[in-house]
Design a protein around this nucleic acid. Sequence first.
DNA 1: TGCCTGAATTTTTTT
DNA 2: AATTCAGGCA
Length: 797
Amino acid sequence: MHIQHSDADPEAPTTDRLLRGLNAEQLAAVTLPARPALILAGAGSGKTRVLTTRIAWLLQTGQVSPGGLMAVTFTNKASKEMQARLSAMLPINVRGMWIGTFHGLCNRFLRAHWKLAGLPQGFQILDTADSLSAVKRIIKAMQLDEERFVPKQVSWFIAGAKEDGLRAKDVEIHDGQTQKLAEIYKAYEDQCLREGVVDFAELLLRAYELMRDNEALREHYRHRFQHILVDEFQDTNRLQYAWLKMFAGPHGAVFAVGDDDQSIYGFRGALVGNMADFEREFHVDKVIKLEQNYRSFGNILDAANHLIDRNSKRLGKNLRTDQGPGEPVRIFESTSDFAEAQWFLEEAQQLHRSGTARSEIAVLYRSNAQSRVIESALFNAGIPYRVYGGLRFFERAEVKHALSYLRLIENPNDDTSFLRVVNFPTRGIGARTIELLQDSARQTGRSLFQSVGSVAGKGGSNLAQFTGLIERMQQATRGLTLRDIIEHMLAETGLIDFYRADKEGADRVENLEELMNAAEAFVTQEGFGRDAVALPVDELSPGTLASRNTSRDVPGIQLDAPVTPDAETGEIMSPLAAFLTHASLEAGDNQAQAGQDAIQLMTIHSAKGLEFDSVFITGLEEGLFPHENSLQSNDGLEEERRLMYVAITRARKRLYLSFSQTRLLHGQTRYNVKSRFVEELPEANVRWLTPRNQAFGSGYAREYKSAWERGTGLGSMIGAGRVESSPVPKAMQDSRSATSSSGQQLRQGQSVFHNKFGEGVIVTLEGAGEEARAQVNFGRHGMKWLALSVAKLTPVD
DNA sequence: TGCCTGAATTTTTTT
DNA sequence: AATTCAGGCA
């Protein structure tokens, strides 16, 4: 069965409204025939619009029914946005459609076929922290050295193996170490299965394997999903790509949208190469490029284009805009991270006074540690701000405790949850007791909960009380609403009282109350569990997988899920189980100070996909950005450059770049050289707010610093133009100074020139006379120790 | 059991 | 600098 493209006339009046306003490339992409397609969508080129319009167009022209397409994203946010936009375009129920994250869709798939997948019906999902603690338990149980098998690394190894599609038996053994790692992996696998839990990577791998090994199922789904759309394709890892191929089949109409220039997740396994592979393996005959940018002004876009052009491995793409040049990109050099923050503060205030909303001002930085100075500047000035990142709602300790109790009510054999709360709040169950319990459980191959009876003594009776508590709660919460279940649990376990008694527990009590609200919202608003409820009812009722989208039946495939146990609601899982799944899969927004007009602070990674009127990229220093750990390989550097590209293209109207000569990091002062990325921008689109120095430590910057330290306002300094350099104060020429071989006076923080290494900054000076040595930061050439009697260092001013 | 001290440890992050 | 974590001790 092949749908003819000519069936759908893009000019038909019904689709006219949908397609209005699209440019030529967008229109071409949206109305492509049902064949594999690759869309190279530059930043700000209307990628999401193309994706959603494509879906709407396919539906409206009758080429596919809502059940016959699947749309995959990486984040919940992206999938929600897609659903929201789609339901605004068409009067359809988006809920039952297969639009979601890789993990969400896999969850849905495995819920429907739990038996075939070899999972317990009510399997729960481990988040990263849960999975780490499971690994820790294994390492302890196997009596391995935690120095040699660092739990985090082991956990990373297991996830990495899964993402390469490898089971424990498939892991390549090179030496004793990998041998042991494979054993740990195996034990971990067994443990997860025993406890009825899966980790994130497992969701994907298991779904992939089930499709691979079950031909009837594979045929069914390949036939069913006539269209598969993938967002952010450049971020797919090996397993995700294999998964897509499995669902699509060799000729499936996969509509992949991505931007190789925005691939910034290589460090966690994303393979940009998947784009080229896809083009080749699916025989994509024409790649459509969306190069018209609707976001930024010309100077910003030119700067971005020029910068990214330095990367070697590119599919090739150049963004253009009709918006005119706009403001130049402004660059500021400061003496310290503190001064940089103050400068930002002044500029941001200025922007705000001239009409920019605070929420349209963003500060982007490479690493989280950089936010602190900026935060404190904003805090002291009393300006509202919001920091992204950090602990999210469902990851907070008190919330995790509460969730663990809930999971035990649902499944008492969940050892991870058992251990988390067995003695919290404390009930006299110590480490020794737990050890005995674990030994017994290990010997009999049962869960901790099941083994409680085998521990005698005081610890044993305390344990019995604990299991009694869980059993009582199981009874008492039967039939209650989700909110009431949680309320009951919080009271019964003493959790809420514990935090009420704690004089610093007010926030935690609030979060627990918030948990009840979240549960209630989950039940009412969401109609609970779009992801958790396996399939829309229409697919379940016949008891086979044949759906109305397929022209022929696929006999013999029974759904694993009991068919509609609750006639009224069609519920397949209990609301509690569904809510727990939701909590794992969707960690919840970070503290959303919603409603406040606040300045936005975030890492560049978390800024991806967002846009702001004014963007400040701070800390543009060698070692920080590009980060020193990335410089080992050229690939690493190119990824950093793409990161810079992403950062630049977040800005609509104004872009500010700043770097600092000095930065307090991890408790010590670092002397940095300005980032190469600053130099890689075209002169024509840039304006320096400070004189463009040939090197650091210019007279201007020193004068600037001393003016600042005297308390002179920065704003006045900016307009003041170049200030003549002043001699270095006598006080600074003490122990921190030395004389170079050429007889020049050197001091800490001094910019110097070396014939081989180029420009650098003196970080440390030691010894005197013949013994004098200097540690110099040469930026891209790294940090060097030089003997001053030998090395020729010329001060630069 | 819980409190204290010392040591380590710091790229980027979603699910 | 700040936070987390393990281990020792009362």
